[in-house]
Design a protein around this nucleic acid. Structure first.
Ligand SMILES: [Mn+2]
Ligand SMILES: [Mn+2]
Ligand SMILES: [Mn+2]
Ligand SMILES: [Mn+2]
Lengths: 168, 168
DNA sequence: CCTTATTTATAGCAATGGCTATAATCGCCA
DNA sequence: TGGCGATTATAGCCATTGCTATAAATAAGG
């Protein structure tokens, strides 16, 4: 909030009659979006690993690759990065395990993902579309928006949503 | 919808007691999200160019770079790609112009962006957060979800949203 | 124990999206 | 009509995220 709309530029003309958004505000939106983009893959990996461990007792590269729809070396490379970032631990030929930090990130992402998907369902969107769109949308939902989604799901107890967690 | 939940795997054990989503469905979600990621930058550029042309009569690299918060050579490279893709026309040292295809994409993106932002505002989210989150969310909103958002905004005429287009 | 199928690791390539530093070009004003 | 400031182009670097092809390691059955 520094420059504001309707200022006088260096040529002495009034700007923004056409209602262009404030430049500083816009740059902040784009920056936030670029930031989210940088972390979304990591979030999906960690969430998926947690799901696989909960379900199968282990998370193997081949299974991760199959679920993501990418090749195994792609997964191998990313797992190295996750390990370097302290989110997972790799035991060679024995699967992948989450560190405490990884578990915490997974918990957070899974919860957020679930709220977003439930929210879309509560809006009346089909289960399939809700599933597909939530996979992308989740990474761009701020804390404030997440709370609004949660409140909406709570109010509209129609709730055709996929319930992974109990309603607590 | 091919394999389904609760199948018997090669070891003869019942899978998916933990309610893991169907693998084919999940891979489709991830694929759609990766696809959206590949096009979102292009969408933001084209939308921004349209806004600048409407507002200033021209779209220059320096202005695009400033609004996106990136360096000018980054913009120069992307504009080459947009030109190669037939979305814009570059007149050297005279700014960027949209082709018919570019105009159509810009119209679509701008409309979708506006619906998403208005929707978030209608949910009671602050204008600033709505602006920031919409910038990322818009690219992952399918046609079905967009219609649901539009319907919700229509119903809740509270509408504290930023109105670029007339309500038609 | 040894072989073999499965799994993982590695090498090398390409596209995308950033950056800095610097050169080239243009428009405009003195 | 120069010349100068602003704009654009280009070169070269890096990180990320994907791929294929191939090598190496492991677990497990015979
Ligand atoms: Mn997720
Ligand atoms: Mn996701
Ligand atoms: Mn946009
Ligand atoms: Mn955007």
């Amino acid at each position: 909030m520094r420059v504001g709309v309707g200022m006088v530029d260096k040529a002495g003309l009034i700007e923004n009659q056409g209602a262009l958004v404030d430049a500083d505000a816009q740059v902040e939106s784009f920056r936030q979006t670029r930031n989210n983009r940088r972390t979304e893959l990591v979030e999906d990996y960690v969430e998926l690993i947690a799901d696989l461990i909960d379900h199968d007792g282990e998370a193997r590269q081949v299974e991760i690759a199959q679920r993501l729809g990418v090749a195994q070396p792609t997964v191998a490379k990313m797992l190295k990065r996750l390990a370097a970032d302290g989110l997972i631990q790799q035991r060679r030929y024995r699967g992948v395990f989450l560190t405490a930090e990884g578990k915490e990130l997974a918990r957070h992402c899974r919860e957020r993902h679930h709220v977003v998907e439930s929210f879309l369902c509560a809006l009346g969107i089909s289960a399939e579309t809700a599933r597909n769109d939530a996979e992308g949308i989740e990474h761009h939902v701020s804390a404030e928006t997440l709370e609004a989604f949660r409140a909406f799901v709570g109010k509209n107890a129609t709730d055709a949503g996929a319930g992974r967690e109990p309603p607590r």
